[in-house]
C-alpha cells in the first residue's frame, strides 16, 4: 500500500530523516518506534505531505505522491491523527467531526458522524462542547474519530497514547487493534513500545533519522537490544 524509498527530510541545516526506506502492506499494522527526536513525526508528516521532501520517493498503491498536495491525500484513502492530538480547540466536537469529513458529500456526513459516534459514545455526550474543554483522553478519541470520518483505508497515527492515563492508553490500543481487525492499514508511531509491539504486525526502529532495525513485531519484542533500549526501564 505505502512505499517509501530513500526519504530525506531536512529543516534548514538539520537533517531530520536521512534516506530511510520502508513499506506498509495492505491490511498491515506497522509501528515505528524510537527515541524522541529520531525523526518519526517528520516521517509521518512527509508521508502526509505536510513537510517537503529533500529527496526520495513516496508512493501509495503504486501512485507517486510527489505531486499530490496534502489536501488531496485524504481523497486517496489516507487519514491522519497528529502528534499532540491537535483537535480544533475552538470548534465543538461535532464541528471537529464535520471538519474531518470535509471531503464527504453533504448527504453522507450525518450518517458517518453517527457511525463514528457509535464507536466513541463519550463524543456523542459531548457533541456540543468545545474540543478545547475535553480531557486529554477525550481529545485523543476525538482526534482518532475525526481521522475516521472518511472511513480511511490507510490510517496514520502519531503517538496516540502520549500523556494519557494507563486505563485510557489501553482503550486507545484496543481501538487500534479493532481498526486493524476491521481491515484498516495502519502506520503507528508510538512511545509505548511494549503495547505497540503487541498490536503491530511489523516494526521499524528509528535512531537519529535512520532506520536501524526492522522485523516482525513479535521478534522485536524478544530482541535483547530493544529490551535494553526501550523496554528495560519502562517494562
Amino acid at each position: 500500500m505505502l512505499k517509501v524509498q530513500d526519504l530525506d527530510v531536512r529543516y534548514g541545516a538539520v537533517a531530520a530523516v536521512k534516506g530511510i526506506s520502508f513499506e506498509v502492506a495492505k491490511g498491515e499494522l506497522v509501528t515505528v518506534i524510537g527515541a524522541n527526536g529520531a525523526g518519526k513525526s517528520t516521517t509521518l508528516n512527509a508521508v502526509m505531505g505536510l513537510v517537503p521532501l529533500s529527496g526520495g520517493e513516496i508512493s501509495l498503491n503504486g501512485k507517486s505522491l510527489a505531486r499530490v498536495p496534502v489536501e488531496n491525500r485524504i481523497g486517496m484513502g489516507m487519514s491522519y491523527s497528529p502528534e499532540g492530538r491537535r483537535v480544533f480547540k475552538t470548534l465543538s466536537v461535532l464541528e471537529n467531526l464535520k471538519a474531518g469529513g470535509s471531503t464527504l458529500a453533504k448527504s453522507k456526513t450525518e450518517a458517518r458522524i453517527a457511525t463514528v459516534m457509535d464507536r466513541f459514545p463519550t463524543l456523542r455526550e459531548r457533541r456540543n462542547q468545545d474540543a478545547g474543554t475535553l480531557s486529554g483522553g477525550e481529545q485523543q478519541m476525538l482526534a482518532i474519530a475525526r481521522a475516521l470520518m472518511t472511513d480511511p483505508e490507510f490510517l496514520i497515527l502519531d503517538e496516540p497514547s502520549l500523556g494519557l492515563a494507563p486505563k485510557i492508553v489501553s482503550q486507545v490500543f484496543d481501538i487500534i487493534a479493532e481498526l486493524r481487525e476491521a481491515g484498516v492499514t495502519i502506520l503507528l508511531v508510538e512511545q509505548n513500545v511494549k503495547k505497540s509491539l503487541a498490536v503491530a504486525d511489523r516494526a521499524y526502529v528509528m535512531e537519529l533519522g535512520l532506520i536501524v532495525k526492522s522485523g516482525p513485531a513479535h521478534e522485536m519484542s524478544d530482541d535483547p537490544d530493544i529490551h535494553d533500549s526501550y523496554l528495560g526501564a519502562a517494562a
Binding site: V70, Y80, T103
Partner: peptide, 13 residues
C-alpha cells in the same frame, strides 16, 4: 478549523 490549525485542516482535505 483552518484558523485553529491550518496544517491539520489541510490534512483533512
Amino acid at each position: 478549523a483552518s484558523a485553529a490549525d491550518f496544517d491539520v485542516a489541510r490534512a483533512m482535505g
